[in-house]
């Protein structure tokens, strides 16, 4: 039941993005939209692939992690304003790809690629913390929670920090998809998609209104 709700929440975030399309232009939100669409397609594909051959599942989930990571890393790359911090997702991505491709070409009998998923979660947590730190040190942004990006990052941060331990142990489950532990994933996926919906639905932030006016007479 929870899995179906999680799936529906993914569709809902896509619907929200399309309904409030005008508000969601710019700020790299299209990347999040793409990741939601990709997630929906992948969920459907997973059902089909599982029926065809169980051994393909490892490669399928590893590929899914690579695409999902790439999209989120791209989002962070656009979200970071400082030139120096822009290097962090680039370096992180190189590290991620090198580790993931090594595990990808190793013969693996397990159904889930725990290493790449955990690596993705750790990198996403790091990027989120860097983003939030840059937001509180940026004097132009007064109310962080008034920005769409803030809610997207919070969604990513909460989801990956809550599922980090699940991904670490997921390879040891006999059947990852049917395991009761996946309730954690489904719960936080619902939360993540709800936060995405909030971000897509909120009004576009006007930076001029957000910054403190030090010279009111000059306006």
């Amino acid at each position: 039941m929870l899995r179906e709700i999680a799936y529906l929440s993914e569709i809902l975030s896509v619907v929200f993005f399309l309904c409030f399309f005008k508000r969601n232009r710019g700020e790299g939100l299209w990347i999040i939209f793409l990741s939601c669409v990709f997630s929906i397609v992948a969920e459907l594909a997973a059902v089909v692939i599982a029926k065809v051959h169980q051994t393909y599942m490892f490669y399928f989930w590893a590929s899914y992690t690579i695409v999902e990571y790439s999209l989120f890393a791209l989002f962070f790359f656009f979200a970071f304003k400082n030139k120096k911090t822009k290097y962090i997702p680039l370096i992180g991505t190189l590290l991620f790809y090198s580790i993931v491709f090594i595990t990808f070409y190793q013969k693996n009998t397990k159904a889930f690629d725990s290493l790449s998923a955990s690596m993705e979660a750790i990198l996403m947590i790091i990027y989120s913390i860097i983003f939030l730190y840059s937001q509180i040190t940026n004097s132009e942004v007064i109310y962080v929670y008034n920005t769409k990006r803030f809610w997207i990052v919070i969604a990513i941060f909460v989801y990956f920090s809550s599922t980090l331990f699940l991904f670490l142990f997921a390879a040891d489950f006999i059947n990852p998809q049917s395991s009761s532990y996946w309730i954690i994933n489904n719960l936080f996926e619902i939360l993540k998609n709800t936060l995405f919906c909030i971000s897509f639905a909120m009004k576009k932030n006007d930076s001029k209104q957000n910054s403190i006016n030090y010279n009111p007479d000059l306006l």
Partner: peptide, 22 residues
């Protein structure tokens, strides 16, 4: 045990950090 406590711990840390930022 590790999974549940780890998840709860991470979640608590995350929420704590967000609340601190706000």
């Amino acid at each position: 045990l590790v999974l549940y406590f780890g998840t709860i711990g991470m979640l608590a840390l995350t929420i704590g950090l967000i609340v601190f930022i706000i």
